[in-house]
């Protein structure tokens, strides 16, 4: 059986291929269209974050993979061989202040935390491993 993973250079141009893989995996697990889109969103935010920080000034590879799961559940791993970086180590962004005072940025990780059901980061040898799990549920 072909492994359920996609491995590509950590470049923004490859985002659509990563997201197509994630959406396909989610559909295969029987998630509703709404939840599939929430999964796409969380995975985009995670990938973009890793692309931004994993390999500063050099090129490298990102691996997005899924493990076996019962219908209605799905867990992704995002792996890179870049510098040690925990993207989850971030404060909750300011969601309250007025337009002109509202800081630009910091929402990506917050969206992942809101949309995912399981989220953890580990340094494993020379790899960063971000685990993001989903079940079928409605966020709002």
């Amino acid at each position: 059986m072909a492994p359920d993973q996609i491995s590509l250079p950590a470049e923004l141009d490859n985002l659509p291929r990563f997201i197509a893989f994630a959406a396909d995996q989610a559909r295969r697990q029987g998630f509703t269209p709404q939840r599939v889109q929430e999964i796409e969103l969380a995975i985009e935010e995670a990938l973009v974050n890793v692309m931004e920080y994993a390999y500063p000034g050099k090129s490298g590879t990102l691996i997005l993979l899924t493990g076996p799961a019962p219908p209605g559940q799905l867990t992704f791993e995002i792996r890179d061989r870049g510098e040690t970086f925990n993207p989850l180590d971030r404060n909750t962004p300011d969601l309250q202040s007025d337009l002109m005072e509202r800081p630009v940025g910091g929402l990506g990780i917050f969206l992942i935390k809101t949309l995912a059901d399981e989220l953890s980061w580990q340094r494993q040898g020379s790899e960063n491993c971000l685990t993001i799990g989903f079940t079928e549920r409605h966020v709002h």
Binding site: Q37, E40, L41, E44, E45, V48, L99, R102, V104, G105, L107, G108, L111
Partner: peptide, 12 residues
């Protein structure tokens, strides 16, 4: 579909 990159562009 919109992600945080879109939100950021709208905020700016």
């Amino acid at each position: 579909y919109i992600s945080s990159a879109g939100l950021r562009a709208i905020l700016i």
